[in-house]
Amino acid sequence: MNGARHRQWGGGLAIYAFAYLAFLYIPVLLLPLFSFNDSLFIAFPLRGFTTKWYAAMAADTQMRAALWNTLKVGATASLVSTILGLLAAKALTQSAPLPSRGFVLGFANLSLFIPEIVIGIALLILMTSVGLPLSLTSVVIGHVLICLPFALLVLMSRLEGFDSSLEEASRDLGENAWMTFWRVTFPLVLPGIIASLLLTFIVSFDDFMLAFFLCGTDTTLPVYIFGELRFPYKLPNVLALGAAILIASAALIALAEWARRLGAEGAARDRVIGA
């Protein structure tokens, strides 16, 4: 193999990689940039620095209500989907594989392969058929469904390296099932639980499509933003809000990835000790 040519290829690839990162980041970073721009229009040249859009955003009571709704939905959906995911992941990663393992996993991940609009209208039909009014509760039901694959992914990978002899030892020493879970299983799975809570919260916080069909009059933040996009004079407020959301969600994701990595390293270590 020609070494010099190989290195040249590598150099070209690295340049491409950085160009691609620019393609991913520049559009997103324009939102914070223009959110400090003293102009109603999102256009160059920049007019000067201002924080008035942030002040306007903070004073917007409708937006605050939508934010509060979104946080409530996100907290509930992430908690419920993580608990369901933990129970299911525990059952699916047992040393004696369940006969229904593949079926349940496929069923749980199915929502990833159905366009969100179809899930949205199907749940809308369900709610009207069973007579449940559209509210934040119906949004939570939809969000738990779409959060479940993410919770399962994170928690199953954490539980797969789990040494079940630790639980057996706890039971042999006289702890009941609940105390065994609480004192042995839970602390070992904790990094995975944190990662799952954060990721599912983000999935719920981000979702527009399901909330659009299911929230009724209890607007969530993405639904509120989508409504605001029709009014050009409100765009700077959306920019300020968007910038705040971008920074908060990037921080949450970095935290979730860090927790997951902590978990992965822990799981690898457990396996080594087990062997």
């Binding site: 991913l24 980041y25 559009p27 997103v28 324009l30 939102l31 223009f34 999102i42 990721l199 983000i202 916080f205 981000d206 527009f208 993405p222 933003i225 989508f226 996009l229 765009l235 959306v238 968007g242 959301i245 971008l246 969600s249 990037a250 949450l252 994701i253 970095a254 990835e257």
Partner: peptide, 17 residues
């Protein structure tokens, strides 16, 4: 992956802008 996790709606909005 970070951009993927930041609001889908806002990324589309960014392109509109």
């Amino acid at each position: 992956t970070i951009p993927f996790w930041t609001s889908y709606l806002l990324r589309v909005f960014a392109w509109k802008v």
